[in-house]
Nucleic acid binder design. Structure first.
Lengths: 206, 206
DNA sequence: TAATCTGGATAGTAGAGATATCCAATTCTA
DNA sequence: TAGAATTGGATATCTCTACTATCCAGATTA
């Protein structure tokens, strides 16, 4: 298909598609002449994925590029694929100065007995939140996070159940990405609704 | 205290503080002369809260203003305060065209028996994610979300437990805000780590 | 009193994420 | 096959957000 069809079927303007190609989010089409190129279903699929990551999840264009590139290169086993999908987000963060909270996160992970990479960005994200809360005068002891962590364990188990039975490595990788990244706003939305419901149940006059 | 002290103690430049005052995120100081004003601990506290919302959570300045204003106006009971804190995020979204997924979300909420406001932005967020997944050719039936929803219920319960015993309405409101909004990246980080761990347990060679 | 600091106003900056315009080559349409 | 429309690619321009810098008259400090 030509660029105009790609544009029409994806609901993205031609200029925006050109921009994504320039930025390396979308591979260029297969050149058929000096000023003609051909695009296929892969391009359409990838373009829709970009719009979902950028639009729904709010990823930056450069973060989306990192994720997609990691995805395209990887055809290994589930564990590696998933790890890549996870790690690619916020990859470009600075290592973050060692706060006292880094040690707290270590304690938490140790207590849980989790097998988590030492350099996982999630560790830093967690430490940063704890630091913020302390600075705000509302410090949270890491033990307070234990119930949340156990719920996260169960959530992760549900996540991986959904990947069971997918054979094709590429499909597996993409599915893992969708489940991890795209489902995040949905999970937060569920939490908000559950909070509203629970709050009404405990204190409300509904 | 003067602006320079406010700046020093908050780690925020004077010009940025002025910018926040202009934008209505921070109330102006108490004027003591034509070119002098006085700031207090409330200002410092609020400023730190702003930095946390904008920096850690990545809220836009206008979203942070909406949240903080809702917080400042509210001194009612837990339920109302929490509802405000929840609703204020993504408040300025357009109502979002009625997709087929809106009905799916209704089904989900009905099945769960949750008491959730009809216009809650979380409903739209959830519908949007489902729409994205369908567009990407990886549709997710709302029943698939049920296990996640039950985990969200338990998470919300832990959330509200933490607010128990706080008497001061202002403190309650602020704490609710922190728990809801600021804890979000931490919960996602826990999920990522749990995924990595579970993936290693199931498929890994670690 | 002189140097510094203050709040407030206005203007300017940097980066992200597109958009718009131009061009020569190519392809559709009549 | 002529002429209009479209294409890919390059470059320039735009809009928005979140700051940042400068200026100034009045206030404070040394």
């Amino acid at each position: 298909m030509r660029m105009s069809e790609l544009s029409r079927r994806s609901g993205t303007s031609v200029t925006t598609i050109k921009y994504y190609i320039r930025e390396g989010l979308l591979p260029p089409g297969r050149q058929t002449a000096a000023t003609q190129a051909e695009y296929d279903e892969q391009h359409l699929r990838r373009l829709r994925l970009i719009r979902a990551l950028v639009g729904v999840r709010g990823l930056s264009v450069s973060a989306a590029r990192d994720v997609l590139n990691a995805l395209a290169e990887q055809t290994g086993d589930t564990h590696v694929v998933l790890g890549l999908a996870l790690g690619a987000i916020r990859l470009a963060e600075e290592p973050a100065a060692d706060s006292p909270e880094t040690a707290e996160v270590d304690d938490l992970v140790k207590e849980l007995g989790w097998n988590v990479h030492e350099a996982a960005p999630a560790r830093a994200a967690l430490a940063e939140t704890l630091t913020s809360l302390r600075t705000l005068g509302a410090p949270l002891h890491w033990r307070t996070l234990l119930p949340y962590a156990h719920l996260a364990e169960q959530t992760a188990s549900v996540d991986l159940d959904q990947l069971d039975g997918i054979e094709d490595p590429l499909e597996l990788a993409e599915r893992a990405l969708l489940l991890t990244v795209l489902l995040e706003p949905a999970l937060l939305a569920l939490r908000r609704m559950a909070q509203e419901n629970e709050s009404a149940r405990r204190h409300g006059e509904h």
